[in-house]
């Protein structure tokens, strides 16, 4: 209801006399802008479809694992029998593929429009440097990637606890998995973030960038698996039961002694090898099997190279952009 005597005055332009919070406010604002972009918040309905589908894809394997666990019943007996009992490490093996899809689709969406629409100079005339921009964009991407992997792991862990006979006892017996889950999650999210953002920095068109990322993942993975396939390996037949990390290998590879090093070039293996190392598991692919012949810390060194080289490429691309 109209208030008697109420009037609207146009006070004209008012100078701003409030607080100015400097660079950290700028970084924080850009971070949230990145998160909103990735999740489609503040955009049309179409922009939300992909993030929702990706979250469903990340959680689905965890739900399937929980259903399997529910059917297994006595987990301890199943482990003793050597049956497949899905755990957090297995989940990371599956979800890495979902994360690659996430990176392939969403990384070009995060960096591409800023360059395509020429928004970058507007950011960089504010109190932000090129390094600020890249680090903040990377963090926004990594946080969503982490949310993806952790959401599935949370479902799986809760499912494991509640499908066991004694949930509290399960938590007491398996608490050590939590730091492992957190650590490998960071390892996977950081690698996917840096690698896919680096590709997106060089390819503006989203479809092309996505094709390059998925293509490189599949083709390099296939080529490395082919080259490192062992024709004769004492442990090969039993490598999924035994632990080739601990036992001496006697393998004849198609490319001889180079095989373990070629195995380090497999994108999927980068995180698989760390996952196997942290959870003390057997390698899951011929490439990873070959890598297992190298000293334990080699996959860690390879991981650092796989993260630092794309990071350098990303920085190099933006350092040279003519604004």
């Amino acid at each position: 209801m109209r208030q008697p005597g109420a009037e609207v005055f146009d006070l004209g332009y008012q100078r701003y006399t409030g607080p100015r919070e400097g660079r950290n406010r700028a970084r924080w604002a850009l971070f949230w802008n990145g998160v909103r972009t990735l999740l489609g918040i503040g955009r049309g309905g179409k922009s939300k479809i992909l993030p929702v589908l990706l979250f469903i894809s990340a959680i689905t394997p965890a739900v399937v694992f929980v259903v399997i666990l529910a059917f297994i019943g006595d987990l301890a007996a199943a482990v003793e029998e050597g049956s497949f009992v899905p755990g957090p490490a297995d989940y990371y093996g599956v979800v890495a593929l979902v994360l690659i899809l996430f990176g392939a689709i969403m990384a070009p969406e995060l960096l591409g429009p800023d360059r395509r629409d020429n928004v970058l100079p507007l950011y960089l005339v504010r109190p932000l440097t090129t390094l600020d921009y890249l680090v903040v964009r990377l963090l926004a991407f990594a946080v969503i990637a982490l949310a993806l992997v952790y959401s599935g792991q949370a479902v799986l862990f809760a499912g494991q606890a509640f499908t066991s006979d004694e949930p509290l006892q399960y938590l007491r017996d398996n608490w050590a998995d939590i730091p492992r889950i957190l650590l490998v999650g960071v390892v996977i999210a950081l690698f996917i973030s840096v690698a896919t953002l680096a590709v997106s920095a060089y390819v503006v068109r989203r479809a092309v960038a996505a094709a390059v990322i998925i293509g490189a993942y599949i083709v390099m993975g296939g080529v490395v698996d082919g080259l490192t396939f062992a024709e004769n390996c004492t442990n090969f037949e039993a490598n999924f039961g035994e632990s080739p990390w601990l036992e001496e290998q006697e393998c004849d590879y198609l490319i001889g002694d180079f095989a373990p090093y070629v195995g380090l070039l497999q994108p999927a293996g980068v995180t698989d090898n760390i996952n196997a190392l942290v959870f003390d598991l057997d390698p899951q692919s011929p490439g990873s099997l070959a890598v297992s012949e190298l000293p334990d810390l080699t996959p860690v060194a390879a991981y650092l190279v796989w993260v630092l080289v794309p990071a350098a490429a990303l920085w190099n691309r933006y350092r040279r952009i003519r604004l």
Partner: peptide, 13 residues
Amino acid sequence: MLMAQLSGLPPSQ
């Protein structure tokens, strides 16, 4: 809003 915050203004302002 984004450009104002990039220049240091808090979100409400």
